[in-house]
Computed example of a mutant assay.
Amino acid sequence: MPLVFPVPPLSTTFAHLLSLSFVFGYVGSIYLSKNSRLSFSGKVIHVANGQARLKEQDERWRDDPDVIKARLVAVGFATLVCCIGVIGVVKCFVGDVEHSTSITLESSLTRLGLTFDDLSIYPYLVTPILFLGPLYVRYLSETLPFQRKYSIKYDFVPTFMSWQGIRNYIFAPITEELVFRACVLSVYQLSGASIISMVFLSPMSFGAAHIHHAWDIFNRYGKTAVAAKRAVIICLFQFAYTTLFGAYCSFLFIRTGSLFPPLVAHSFCNVIGLPQITAEMKRWPRRKYAIIATYLVGIGSFIYTLGPWTYSAESLYWLRLTLERTPNNSGQKPFY
C-alpha cells in the first residue's frame, strides 16, 4: 500500500504537462506511421445531405481493417509507454520515500487501478441500471442474449470478433481507460489535485482527444461547406458527451480505486450506444409509457445506487480524501 506524504510529490504544472504528454502521445501515435494514417481523394464531392460519399479504391478510411490493425498496434504501444511513464514518475518522485523497488511497483499498480483488492460486483451494475430504458427496448425487440432473435453467429461474432468490434468494444476501452483514467488521474493524484478537479476537469482531455475525428468526417462527407459544418457539429457533440462520460468513469475510478469498473462501463456503453428514446417510442407506440417509465426508473435507480454501490474502502483516491479531512497531531493535513 502506498505511503502517506506530508506534501504532494508533484507540482500542478508538472502534472498538467504529463497529462498533455499522455494525450498527445496516445492520439499522435496513430499519425506516426503511414499504415495508420488516413488518406482521402482531393476531390470535392457533393452528396445528399446526411449521407457519406462512396469510398474510392485508393483511399484509406478509418474502418478499413488494415488501418484498424495498424492503429491498434500504435495505441497499444503508446499506452504501454504511458504506463511505464507513470511507473517512472512514481520511482523518481516517490521511490525515495518508499525505499523499495517492490513497494514502488506495488504503489504504481495501485495508482493505475490494476489491483484486485475489492471484488465486489456492485460497481459493475451501476451502468446497466442507468441504461435500463435501452435494455428494455432491446428486450422488446427480442435481441438481448438468449432471446429468440439473438444469434451468436449473426450478432455476437460480427459485433465482437470483427476488427471494428475488437477496436470499439475491447481495445479502445482498455487503452483509453488506461491512459485517460489510470495514467492521467494518477499524476493528478500525486500533485494533490482535488477530487472535484479530477472528476470534472481531467476528462476534458478525453473529450479533446476525439476532436481529430473532424478531419475524417469532413473528407467522408465530401469536403464541402456542408461537410465542414457537419464535422464541427459532430465533434462538438462528441466532445460534450465524451467529457461527460469521462467524468463518470473518473468518478468510478476514484471511488473504487480500480480500473476495471470504468473499463467495463466504457465497453458496455459502446455496445449499447446513445439512447434514442424518441425513435423507440415511435417504433413501439403501445409501449410508449412503459419505455418512459423504464428510462425514469433507470435514472432514479442510478442516482440512488451510484454512491453506496461504488464505495470501496480499498480506494487509494477516496482514502486520500478522508485523510485530508483529518489533520494529524501537528495540525498538518497528510497527503496520500
Results as ranks from 00 to 15, higher is better:
Ala74Thr: 02
Gly95Ser: 08
Ala74Glu: 02
Lys91Met: 14
Leu109Met: 14
Phe93Trp: 11
Leu114Pro: 01
Val81Asn: 00
Arg111Gly: 15
Pro123Gly: 02
Asp96Tyr: 09
Val75Asn: 07
Val75Ile: 10
Asp118Phe: 00
Pro134Phe: 06
Val94Trp: 04
Gly85Arg: 04
Phe93Pro: 01
Ser107Ala: 15
Ser141Lys: 14
Thr110Phe: 09
Ile87Gln: 09
Ala78Gln: 00
Thr127Val: 15
His99Pro: 06
Cys82Leu: 06
Phe77Trp: 06
Phe116Ser: 10
Asp96Trp: 07
Phe131Ser: 10
Asp118Thr: 03
His99Met: 08
Asp118His: 07
Gly113Lys: 05
Ala78Leu: 00
Val94Leu: 11
Gly133Pro: 02
Ala74Ile: 00
Phe116Cys: 12
Val86Ala: 07
Leu130Thr: 13
Asp117Tyr: 06
Pro128Asp: 09
Tyr124Ala: 10
Tyr136Gly: 08
Tyr136Cys: 08
Asp96Phe: 07
Cys82Pro: 04
Ile87Lys: 11
Tyr124His: 05
His99Trp: 05
Leu132Gly: 06
Leu140Arg: 13
Phe116Thr: 08
Gly133Lys: 10
Tyr122Val: 01
Tyr139Gln: 08
Leu109Ala: 14
Leu130Gly: 13
Gly85Asp: 03
Phe116Val: 11
Ser141Leu: 11
Asp117Asn: 11
Ile84Phe: 05
Thr79His: 02
Thr127Ile: 15
Leu140Thr: 09
Pro134Gln: 02
Cys92Ile: 13
Gly88Tyr: 01
Leu132Gln: 07
Gly85Pro: 00
Leu130Glu: 15
Glu106Phe: 13
Ile129Phe: 09
Asp118Glu: 00
Pro123Ala: 06
Leu119Gly: 12
Gly85Cys: 03
Ile87Arg: 09
Ala74Val: 01
Leu112Phe: 00
Leu112Glu: 12
Arg111Met: 15
Val137Glu: 11
Glu106Lys: 15
Val126Asn: 04
Lys91Ser: 12
Thr79Lys: 03
Ser102Gly: 11
Ser107Met: 10
Asp118Lys: 07
Ser102Trp: 13
Leu140Pro: 04
Asp118Pro: 02
Ser108Pro: 04
Tyr139Asp: 02
Thr110His: 14
Cys83Val: 09
Leu119Lys: 13
Asp96Arg: 10
Gly95Leu: 05
Thr101Ile: 15
Val137Lys: 14
Thr101Arg: 13
Leu130Trp: 13
Phe77Tyr: 00
Ser107Thr: 15
Arg111Trp: 14
Val94Arg: 09
Ile87Ala: 15
Ser120Thr: 01
Tyr122Pro: 03
Ser120His: 03
Ile84Gln: 01
Cys83Arg: 01
Cys82Ala: 11
Phe116Asp: 02
Ser120Gln: 03
Val137His: 10
Glu98Asn: 06
Ile84His: 01
Gly88Pro: 02
Val137Gly: 10
Thr104Cys: 13
Gly85His: 04
